[in-house]
């Protein structure tokens, strides 16, 4: 098991390095040099940039040096917690990121839980009642869930809530708590607001996972060990839950890591509609403003989170699957 973890760890680190290449590439992708864009931005904001300031920036990012050196300077900054500077906010990227990454993680985790808690039971039901009414209804509803753009679902849900219950659900906090220090009341307020994005982000994932679970379980129900368990005289419920479901869920744990990108994508875009202080609005805004150090770093962090999630999913799988544990 330790060897297994070590192997996954080495693998993860090498992926992180590759991701940082992509991040750097993205930063340098837009036409025009960083300095040009910086100046243009400053002019738009009506401030003049001092020559000395530009020089300092050039030195900081090594812009007069060859590209590999620039990359090295950028990467070295990570270790010290220096991710570059956002023009738009004129703040360090690191300050901007920490505030928002936490909420992104909270929504992603919540959505993941929601997806599993809803999709797995429905998947089991539909597989054990194949082609019955409930199965067909779930298939069609699930398909509809897959086909609605996240942001539209968010809008519709907000309108429905506003119409039915008469309160607005945008944001993560009620007005009085936005700047308040953390307290129990603030946490409760957060939870009250959090469920909407969680449900919205989770919907398409639920539809997908449900179908996969159904398919897996149908396969497993045809396996000989399920027949053998039945032939021992076990109750049908025991056969399904103990032998079939556990085996059907296994491959899903591998999917757990792979479903994270979709969830994060969903949360990014839903955040815009719902006005959530997560990575989403900041990231897309940075892209529109070509604030590339901010955007590139955000993108990289999202990818880091995913790789980490994958790594954890791998370990989880190793923990519960004897075939991997004893490898």
């Amino acid at each position: 098991m330790l060897a297994f973890i070590a192997r996954r760890l080495v693998y993860m680190i090498s992926t992180l390095v590759l991701i940082s290449f992509v991040g750097f590439l993205i930063i340098n992708l837009p036409p025009g040099s960083y300095i040009d864009v910086f100046q243009a931005q400053r002019q738009l904001q009506g401030t003049h940039t001092a020559e000395a300031e530009l020089e300092a920036l050039k030195r900081r990012y090594g812009l007069d040096k060859p590209v590999p050196v620039q990359y090295w300077i950028w990467v070295r900054g990570f270790v010290r917690g220096d991710f570059g500077r956002s023009f738009e906010f004129n703040r360090e990227v690191s300050e901007l990121i920490w505030e928002r990454l936490g909420f992104t993680v909270a929504i992603a985790t919540g959505s993941l839980l929601f997806i599993w808690l809803v999709a797995i039971p429905i998947g089991i039901y539909t597989a054990t009642h194949q082609y019955k009414l409930g199965d067909n209804v779930a298939t069609i509803v699930g398909m509809a869930g897959l086909s609605i753009p996240d942001f539209m679902l968010a809008l519709v849900l907000m309108v429905v809530i506003q119409r039915l219950f008469g309160f607005t659900v945008g944001g993560l906090f009620s007005r009085e708590y936005v700047d308040a220090p953390w307290s129990l009341a603030k946490v409760i307020d957060l939870v009250k607001h959090l469920w909407v994005p969680i449900v919205v982000v989770g919907t398409s994932g639920t539809a997908g996972l449900m179908r996969i679970m159904r398919g897996n379980l149908l396969d497993i129900l045809n396996m000989q060990y399920v027949q053998a368990a039945r032939a021992r005289g076990l109750r049908e419920a025991t056969v399904v839950v103990k032998h079939a479901v556990r085996n059907a869920i296994h491959p899903l744990i591998m999917l757990l890591g792979m479903s994270l990108p979709t969830i994060i994508s969903g949360s990014l875009i839903v955040s815009i509609v719902l006005g959530l202080p997560t990575t989403g609005p900041l990231y897309f805004n940075a892209l529109r403003q070509q604030d590339m150090y901010l955007a590139g770093t955000f993108l990289m962090f999202l990818a880091f989170m995913l790789v980490l999630g994958n790594f954890l999913a791998d370990i989880l799988l190793g923990l519960i699957d004897p075939r991997i544990r004893y490898e």
């Binding site: 992926t15 990108p261 994060i264 969903g266 990014l268 955000f298």
Partner: peptide, 24 residues
């Protein structure tokens, strides 16, 4: 395969948006 995994480790919308933003 490594390349594919690399691409898959980005949230697709975010990567699409970054590439779209980089268009002239």
């Amino acid at each position: 395969q490594r390349f594919i995994e690399l691409l898959m480790s980005f949230p697709s919308i975010a990567l699409w948006a970054a590439l779209a933003a980089a268009m002239p």
